[in-house]
Every structure is written in C-alpha cells, then in structure tokens.
Nucleic acid binder design. Structure first.
Lengths: 233, 233
DNA sequence: ATTTTTTTTTAGATTTGCCTAAACTTTTAT
DNA sequence: ATAAAAGTTTAGGCAAATCTAAAAAAAAAT
C-alpha cells in the first residue's frame, strides 16, 4: 500500500462514505462534503484516476476502484481506532473524538496502527457504534437497524448513532440515551411517525430509581431522531 | 498559541535544538539537519521572522525569540509524550519511537496532549531520558552528566542517550546498556580516552549470572560512545 | 425540439514549500 | 590587504492543492 497525502486521503474516505454500495458520486456532492469547490474536486479526481484509485469518465461521476476501497478501509480503520483510544483511554467525551481523530488518522505507520489495535484489545466498534475494519479490511457488519424499523416490544440495545450534530447530542444526553442503552419501542404514531420508547435497566446500573421497579416512564421521540439511532437485537 | 504548519514546526524545533542556550544558528547547519537546501532555509527564516518567532538579520544567523522558544517547547512536549506513550503503552522498542513521534507531534490539539499527559501519569522523562516539558513549558533539568565526566568508582544510572544512530543503538544493545542500567567507571585511559566500565546488578534483575555474585566483568567503551551516554548519580 | 438551468470541466491565478543557479557577503588564507 | 574559499541570499521555477471566472456538457423545463 502506497502513501497518500492528507488531502488525497480525505477525498478517498469521503467518496467511500458517499458511494454507499454501488452509487456513483457527483462532483458537487463531494465538493459540498469536503467544503471545497467543484473545480478542486475535478482536479483531484483526475489525479486519483491516474493512480487507479477510482473509475471516472468526465461528467459521469466516480466510484472507487477495488484498490481505492482498500485504501479507504485503511483510513477508516485508523480513524476509528483512534476514536476508540480517545474515548476509552483518554476519557474524551463521545462527541469530541471525531475532530481529533480526523488529524490522527493521517499518521500512517502500519506498525503504529497494528500495535494500537493490539493495545486496545482489537475492538470491533468505535464509540459511535461504527465497525472497525481489521488489518485486512474486514469488518463486522452485524445487523444494526434503525429505531424506526424496530418492532414494538422487541428489546434492543443502542449500538450506533449516526449523523450526530451538537444539537442531537444535546438531546440524547438529556434523555440519557447512550451506546449500550437498552430499550423497547412501546408505540408508533402514524400522524408524525414519532415513537414512544421505554428505557430498560442497563446491566451495570442497579440503583433504585424514583419510578419503581419498572424504571423511568416511556417517552416520545421524533422520527428524525429515531432514524439516527441504531440498535442490535 | 497560533497554529503552525508541519514544516514551520520542524524548523522551529530544529533551531531550538541547535541553538543550545545562546548560540546563533547558521543557515548551512540548519539546512544540513533538515536535509534541505540553504536557499529553502533562508525563505523560511524570512517567514518566521515576520511571525516574530525568531531574531534574524541577513548573514548574521538566527535565534528563536521568546515566543519561538515557547512554541518549540510545546512541540518538544508533544514529541516526548508520544515517545513515552509508544514505548510504555504500545511496547515499541526504544529505538523505534522517534520516527513515529516525528509524525504524531504535529497533531496539535492542546486538549489531546494534556489528556495524554494525564493518562501517562505526567512522566518527567521520555524513553531516551530527555526531560518532558509540562503544559507551561517547564521541564526538569536534573543534573545529567556524560560518562566521560563521571568519576571513577562513582555508581551512577544511565538516564539518557543522545545522538543515537542505528549503529550506536546496535552497540548499546549488544553491550546490554539501556536507560536505567546502573554502572561504575573503573578506569580511564589517556591514550584514546576510552574508559572501562562495569555494569551493576539492576534492582529488578536478580537472576544468577555465570559471572558470580559480582556480575559481568568490566569492559571498555570508546570515548565517542561514552560522550553520548548520560547518567544521574 | 429548443431553451433554460444545473452541473461539470477548463483555463489561469495564488500560496506554500521546495529547488537550482547566480549573485552577493563574510571569512580565511596568502 | 587582497584574493580565494565558504557561506548566504536573491531570482526565477516547479509541484501540490486550492481558488475564480468562463466555457462546455448534461439535465430539466417549456
């Protein structure tokens, strides 16, 4: 695996996230995500094409090649391992790890990352619940469904939150929802597709609450929030 | 404290090391250390002067300003904390930490470094024995003398090795000299200023050696090596 | 089927950090 | 004291990554 510049790596990583599966990625979408100009994207696409990291015909959008995907997974591995390190060892808050990991991910010593992985105990998911690729690029794709898809009365555990903004994290924190929280959907309302959920006693937390043996009362959350919370059964 | 580019940081750090105390640093010396060309150094010196990080009059050499020294100490702090982390936590070998830390030191989140420092237990020295500046730039300057200055029969402990090349590390490894090794100078020879030293039982290592209760026999080391080994009494 | 709008690309600059070659200072040697 | 050598700076260029403005292609609307 060759070395790529920080800028190249940011393009590759972002294309990977945008081309969820087989989608083709557009110049404008990529420029938007990277806070840059379409013209800069075109320049970089030409360069990455000559390096055989992506397929690209002018005006036709682009997709990572197999080699490009490998590189992307390696960057994502580095990013998520650092996120795990920051949260787990340095006690960063869940919502602070991303920005710092954006810098650390570009330090590309293979030995460093493999030793870090070992030190951390080969974690499978980062603090946001995203799976961490192993050194071969394989990662767990354990069934993670959105809260909107979770059947009523089916117990589940929060394993991932996507698209987190500061506002969203504030709301989650207020409602005491974190990775690992166990819950059930109690009712779904057609009117605005909001859903009522009930948090369950987590294994660790056994203190008496003021709500009796059944814990806190159920409460409503919006569809917009539910879409962004993923759970495992 | 503003942010500086990786390149600027490398210049600042290297000037700090070269201007040991009040020396003035020359263009050629800096170019040599940074494996770059004198013309590039001049360019950068002009830039750093406008940023008030150093004092510089054409043809007269340069010295860091107080602000420049502060920046240098911050970079050195990051570098040495990462070295400590790599050796202590990730079990990198003593001679492998420097190269990786060269990259990590440029990730400049203050919060990251302060939390790393806390996590590591506020270490005072890096794996080479160099003192680590605290978040205010203060560092231990505990008396560390070169082996060439150590009086005969004065027990001491290796605390620092400077100027380490691969060849030198090979030699140290072969003679089983590491940070923490305790020893005494037994004889000094005027002819080539080589010295004879004797390793002492380290506190930790209590296994019987084939050399009886007094440990290994004394052996000679060159002046060149002795100059680079520092000890505390 | 044109025209309009949107998207994408090209052309030409800019900034950073580096280079070579030539010019200029300072130092050293005669 | 002056010439040669060594060290330093200037001048002019180059590559990476960005930008703006204009041109070209594709998509949408009439």
């Amino acid at each position: 695996m060759l070395n790529y510049s920080t800028s190249e790596e940011n393009y590759i990583k972002t294309i990977y996230h945008l081309q969820n599966g087989q989608n083709t990625v557009s110049t404008n979408a990529l420029a938007e995500k990277l806070s840059t100009r379409p013209a800069s994207v075109t320049d970089m696409m030409k360069k990455l094409k000559t390096k055989k990291l992506l397929h690209y015909q002018p005006y036709q959008g682009f997709r990572l090649s197999n080699e490009g995907k490998k590189v992307a997974l390696d960057i994502i591995r580095r990013h998520r391992l650092w996120e795990y390190f920051l949260a787990e060892k340095l006690k960063f808050k869940w919502d602070e790890v991303h920005a710092v990991a954006e810098d650390l991910e570009h330090v590309s010593s293979k030995k460093l990352i493999d030793k870090l992985d070992e030190y951390l105990g080969y974690p499978k998911f980062d603090p946001h619940g995203d799976p961490i690729p192993d050194s071969l690029g394989k990662m767990d794709s354990s069934r993670q469904i959105s809260l909107t898809e979770l059947p009523v009365n089916q117990p589940a555990e929060v394993c991932r939150v996507i698209n987190q903004s500061d506002e969203m994290l504030e709301l989650l924190q207020h409602k005491k929802i974190t990775i690992g929280t166990r819950l059930e959907v109690k009712k779904k309302f057609g009117f605005d597709r909001s859903i009522e959920i009930k948090l369950k006693q987590s294994k660790g937390a056994l203190q008496r609450s003021p709500h009796g043996p059944s814990g806190q009362p159920p409460f409503l959350i919006s569809e917009q929030l539910a879409k962004n919370i993923f759970v495992t059964l």
